[in-house]
Computed example of a mutant assay.
Amino acid sequence: VQDIVADLSDDGEITRGWLGVQIRPMTAEVAQVLGYDAPKGAVIEAIGDDSPAKKAGLEKGDIILSFNGTEIKELRDLTRAVAETDPDAKADVVVLHKGKEVTRAVTIGTLADQKA
């Protein structure tokens, strides 16, 4: 609540970071194949055409393991970390891409207003 009040007092609006990906959880089977004890991360299902993720080189099938230093254990870890990141800020995203961990630098966008 304090973050929202501070955001509103800034300019009268609530702004949230946007990455531009659709994600799903890693399955137990995939975790086992990758040698993990349990599923973790967020699997990218789709990427918006003009999204920050696309511009950073993220691809469908990549597994986001951490976002700006925050380990992604569950999907909400990623959505929360992205939303709390200021638009236009740079963030390092560690992904498992074709079996190798790589770091991609992404410039966060602004989440468009949602209709009620």
Rank of each mutant, 00 (worst) to 15 (best):
V43F: 07
V43E: 06
V43Y: 08
V43P: 01
V43M: 08
V43T: 06
I44T: 04
E45L: 15
E45Q: 14
E45T: 11
E45G: 15
A46H: 10
A46S: 13
A46N: 12
A46M: 10
I47E: 02
I47S: 03
D49P: 15
D49W: 15
D50N: 14
D50H: 11
D50A: 15
P52L: 05
A53T: 03
A53E: 00
K54V: 12
K54G: 12
A56F: 03
A56S: 05
A56P: 03
A56D: 02
A56Y: 02
A56I: 01
A56C: 05
G57E: 03
G57D: 04
L58G: 00
E59A: 11
E59R: 13
E59C: 11
E59M: 15
K60D: 11
K60A: 11
D62C: 00
I63V: 08
I63W: 02
I64N: 01
I64D: 00
L65P: 03
S66G: 03
S66Y: 03
S66T: 07
F67W: 05
F67E: 00
N68E: 07
N68I: 10
G69Y: 04
G69D: 05
G69P: 06
T70G: 12
E71V: 14
E71Q: 11
I72Q: 03
I72A: 06
K73Y: 10
K73G: 12
K73L: 15
E74T: 11
E74D: 13
L75Q: 14
L75F: 06
R76E: 13
R76H: 15
L78H: 04
T79E: 12
R80C: 14
R80P: 14
A81H: 07
A81S: 14
V82K: 05
V82L: 05
A83D: 05
A83C: 07
A83M: 08
A83Q: 09
A83S: 10
A83Y: 06
A83I: 08
E84I: 13
E84F: 12
E84A: 13
T85P: 06
P87I: 05
P87A: 07
D88K: 14
D88L: 12
A89M: 09
A89R: 11
A89I: 06
K90M: 11
A91P: 02
V93L: 04
V94G: 02
V94L: 06
V94W: 02
V94C: 03
V95S: 00
L96V: 02
H97W: 10
H97Y: 09
H97V: 09
K98G: 08
K98S: 13
G99W: 01
K100Y: 10
E101G: 07
E101N: 11
E101A: 09
E101R: 11
T103Q: 08
T103D: 11
T103G: 10
